[in-house]
Design a protein around this nucleic acid. Sequence first.
DNA 1: TCTGGGGTCCTAGGACCC
DNA 2: TCTGGGGTCCTAGGACCC
Length: 432
Amino acid sequence: MLALVDGNNFYCSCERVFQPRLKNRPVVVLSNNDGCAIARSDEAKALGIKMGTPWFKIRHLEEEAGLVAMSANFALYGDMSDRMMTLAAGLGHMQEVYSIDESFIDLSGIPGDLVRRARIIRRRIHQWIGIPTCIGIGPTKTLAKLANAIAKSAERKPGSYPAHHAQICHLGACSREELGQLLQATEVGDVWGVGPRIGAQLRAQGVHTALDLQRMNPAAAKAGWSVMLEKTVRELNGVPCIEFEDEPPAKQQIACTRSFGHPITELQDLQEAITEFACRAAEKLRRQNSHTVHIMAFIRTSPFREKDPQYSHSASIPLPSPTSDSAHITQAASAILKHIYRPGFKYAKAGVMLMDLQPATRRQLTLDLDAEMPENRVRLMQAMDEVNQRFGRGTLHLASAGTTGRHRAWAMKQERLSSGFTTDWTGLAVTF
DNA sequence: TCTGGGGTCCTAGGACCC
DNA sequence: TCTGGGGTCCTAGGACCC
């Protein structure tokens, strides 16, 4: 048996922990650049605000409905997530952290009443961290996901499902009949793994509910769609097909991409942005102890500014040898930028991607008489990471990322950022 | 004026090999 | 008249997830 512990409206809930004035009010958290809504409180959902709605389209609700918008504070959410995950892990003996606000817990062999156990953990997370959660339990990941969705719906929309499933729903404890009824009350598009595209195709074939999908022939699911959907059908029938991943596998690619706070036109500004993205990506790369051998960079104008001339281009180059050195990676990204840059456009976004990652322990020997001592470079990067870890991001950086004093034309817009309540001494909450 | 960022997996088709 | 069969690897694009 598996559980899925999931924070409700996670980013909004994190903001509410330290700003009680936000309770019982419609709240949204905005993406980078205060672009669009990426998290909504129940009250905001009730106003009809959809995931991903641009802020300028709902801004009028500030006045009209008391809507509060916050800039995304990912440092805070990451820290709150760590705390929540630690407590959630107590539910069973293995945990898979699936996203910033969700983790699967392996409950196999856990004796006693699982619902009671889940209730204790849920209460503890709420009491110690302040984050409300829902817990879904089922024999497969897909069913645990579904149970979680039912637990949330039953809480938020009374009448959608039987009230006793609110907050905690254990599908493994349901009778066959009851499971059938719950599946029938669930739209096929709400099943994990069924997106808008496949959902529409399924409905066109008369498959409207999770129950219809459960009863589908797995072979037909594979023939008509893919092995993915076949697995989903089997999982709905209680046959585990998606593995539990105790520890996260190393990433196969690492990206750092950003939209700019304002459109920029100059090569030097792009150069600074690309340098910063390359360095951040390199940092992530070193954190997972990998090397990259292939670098891609892109720049683009905004597709939403339809009247502006549009330009979007990317290129990639292989590196002479695997590396995680910020300077080498930046050099390559910078060379790509010079190659693809065209003057006369208003650039809105750029990014760097590191591909073909491999373990840093695999070493390719080359005969390069001009090469610097590689151990020295490794030590330099370690020192840089340690300094930045201790004194804050950007304390040590490459000069091409821009020097202090020079205006960062491409800086992100964050007009409604909350403090680093748990991540920064100067951001501690002092009064409530 | 104003529209996010970061991932994974699968599939089909082409190139290439013997 | 009649021109094989089987396999791998790579890539681009599509779909999904949060």
